[in-house]
């Protein structure tokens, strides 16, 4: 049994109460939701918070709501809800692709999307998903609400722009017509963190061209989370194998993987290329099959 250092615990009864508790206990207080990253870190004594502010009772932060051209996800929404939501899968199939590969059912039953994003692990699948979906994040603090785009959420590994006295409350995914997406991951074993993963979301134009595209890569040190040169190279072009290969090549060039037990640097770079091609191919297939089903 691994044993954390002593800490105090408070159970928030409302979002305002949680914010008040954070303000009260200051720097050494941490919000706990699913706890599947924080608790292991505490047990290994990599994290030693003096206070845990438990927000698991804040049921009003657990929702998936379609509103106009936005899908709004409460920060306390569990992985399992995202995995099982047909609404999410219909609009953004990459979410289900990704959720299927995240940890195991026990973790997915408990872990939350807000926790995943705020943990800011460089190998976090949902971070890539949110980059690819051009996510907007709602953050509440003592002075009210603010929104930030995904690219401004992470300041570096395990570091976010959510301040000590703030809580991430909502994740907003813009809904676009004639769009689809895909995510794929290579792992050494089911439930492992990604050796490398890729996600893509694209919108097809009237002439069958790729009107818009976002490509994201996981765990390979991609600046800003998206492969912009690859995106630029294929935007406006007709989809096809040569185009995917070009996108893969550029994405692989732009990432900065580090060799470790999951894989060599060369292998991860190769995967960035290979998986970029696979998600583009899959996303195009999905748009086309949806369009075919409609016509």
């Amino acid at each position: 049994m691994q044993i954390p250092a002593a800490f105090e615990y408070a159970r928030a009864e409302s979002l305002d109460h949680a914010l008040q508790l954070l303000a009260e206990h200051g720097e050494e207080a941490r919000v706990i939701a699913g706890g599947h990253s924080l608790l292991p870190m505490m047990k290994l004594r990599l994290a030693n918070p003096e206070w845990l502010i438990d927000i698991n009772d804040l049921a009003d932060l657990d929702y998936i709501t379609e509103e106009g051209d936005t899908l709004r996800i409460g920060a306390l929404t569990r992985h399992v809800s995202l995995l099982e939501s047909d609404a999410v899968a219909g609009l953004f199939p990459l979410v289900r692709d990704a959720e299927k590969t995240i940890a195991d059912p026990l973790v997915r039953n408990r872990g939350t999307i807000g926790g995943s994003l705020c943990q800011a692990d460089p190998a976090e699948d949902l971070s890539t998903v949110c980059h690819v979906l051009r996510t907007e994040l709602v953050i509440r603090g003592p002075n009210g609400e603010r929104t930030v785009p995904m690219r401004e959420l992470h300041r570096g590994p395990y570091e976010t722009s959510v301040e000590q006295n703030e809580i991430l409350t909502e994740i907003r995914w813009p809904i676009r017509p004639r769009s689809s997406s895909a995510y794929t991951k290579v792992e050494r074993r089911v439930g492992d963190w990604a050796t490398t993963a890729a996600g893509a979301c694209l919108t097809m134009g009237d002439a069958g061209q790729i009107e818009d595209v976002v490509i994201g890569l996981t765990a390979v040190g991609l600046d800003g989370g998206t492969a912009t040169r690859a995106e630029d190279a294929i935007r406006g072009q007709q989809p096809g194998e040569e185009l995917y290969a070009e996108a893969g090549r550029l994405a692989a060039e732009d990432c900065n993987p580090v060799g470790d037990q999951r894989g060599t640097e060369a292998y991860k770079r190769h995967l960035a290329d290979e998986l970029t091609q696979r998600v583009l191919r899959k996303a195009v297939e999905r748009v086309n099959s949806t369009a075919a089903a409609r016509s």
Binding site: V186, T195, R262, T264, Y267, H270
Partner: peptide
């Protein structure tokens, strides 16, 4: 035979 080690073997390299 992790994916990385298999791929490296395919490139003729030993890790």
């Amino acid at each position: 035979c992790t994916p990385s080690r298999v791929w490296e073997a395919m490139q003729g390299r030993h890790v």
